[in-house]
């Protein structure tokens, strides 16, 4: 298993390098110049021109590539054009914010999704199943931005029980630790709910379908014939096999842990990776775009690796040499 993991990690290095090189060239070939935003109003008309020189954007593309490559090899990701800050520092600040949001959203997603799926599958064709199906379809169809705004208007503005935006209240930095954490939790409720609930509906559907397929297998009938309790049949024998597609789904969801969720982050002013990436793309902030691609790329590779490893734990037929 260890050798397998090492081999997978080693093979990821050229993949990442290729991805970053591709991104480097593709974003520079895209129309739009990072300094174009500054050719406006009461700014020095020649500012954009000077800024291009200062940022090294006038260098030929191969020269820019070599400079960038030298930076990457020495562990530097460069400086953001729009935020005037080291990209490493920006990531160090943004990734924890994103993880805080996405981790709990994933817990909510898989926690609620699996339970709903199991209940729905076990009550197949009964009113509970129909109700959960309608609910899942409803939640899955609601656009995130709409749900977010409705919750802000309903729960935050009209009921005034939760904050509408941000990670903390304005003066939270002066609160004692417990109060600070409570303030944080209150700010997390709405964005985590919006992010987790729609995905939970989808996960629930997967879980239902998978479990329904498994309970029709011969070995489940055998287990029941042996006189095992329904709890053991479902919990020990059926659920374990039914989890395989869910694990694939989980592996595919891992990049989202660091990739963030742009719509929810924007609606709730949550300073995470999703919004950072999109803002960087619109501003043609090349160093930030490449760094965000790196993070997403790493997470896709890690996600797939984790899913593959988890298969081995769930499915005894799978062994990695």
């Amino acid at each position: 298993m260890f050798r397998y993991i090492v081999r997978r990690v080693m093979s990821a290095v050229p993949l990442l390098f290729g991805l970053l090189t591709f991104t480097f060239f593709i974003i520079r070939l895209a129309p739009g110049d990072p300094t174009a935003m500054y050719i406006r109003g009461d700014v020095d008309p020649h500012y954009a021109e000077q800024l291009r020189a200062t940022l090294g954007l006038n260098d030929p593309l191969p020269v820019q590539y070599v400079k960038w490559l030298r930076g990457v090899v020495s562990g530097e990701l460069g400086t953001s054009f729009s935020l005037n800050d080291e990209v490493v520092d920006i990531l160090a600040r943004t990734i924890p914010n994103t993880m805080l949001l996405t981790f709990f959203a994933l817990v909510l997603n898989f926690g609620i999704g699996i339970v709903l799926g199991v209940v729905s599958a076990l009550r197949r064709g009964k009113p509970v199943d129909h109700l959960l199906n309608v609910l899942a379809l409803f939640l899955y169809s609601i656009p995130e931005f709409w749900l977010g705004l409705m919750l802000i208007l309903g729960v935050s503005l009209n009921l005034d029980v939760l904050p509408a935006s941000g990670i903390h209240s304005p003066l939270a930095q002066f609160l004692p630790t417990w109060e600070y954490l409570w303030d944080l939790m209150q700010h997390m409720v709405l964005p985590v709910f919006v992010l987790g609930v729609a995905s939970a509906a989808a996960t629930g559907r997967y879980m239902r379908g998978s479990l329904l397929e498994v309970v029709q297998q011969d070995y489940i009938r055998t287990a029941r014939a042996k006189g095992l309790s329904e709890f053991v049949v479902i919990g020990k024998h059926a659920l374990r096999n039914a989890m395989i597609p869910i694990i694939t789904l989980f592996g595919l969801s891992l990049p989202f842990l660091l990739g963030g969720a742009v719509i929810v982050e924007t609606v709730f002013s949550w300073p995470g990776m999703g919004k950072l990436t999109v803002d960087a793309i619109f501003a043609r902030d090349y160093p930030v775009i490449i760094a965000c691609t790196l993070v997403s790329g790493v997470m896709v590779i890690v996600g797939n690796l984790v899913a593959d490893i988890l298969y081995a734990f769930v499915d005894p037929r799978i062994r990695y040499g």
Partner: peptide
């Protein structure tokens, strides 16, 4: 405070 979404800002 940075609040980028206009509706949220107004709320």
């Amino acid at each position: 405070r940075v609040i980028s979404e206009p509706t949220t800002r107004l709320t």
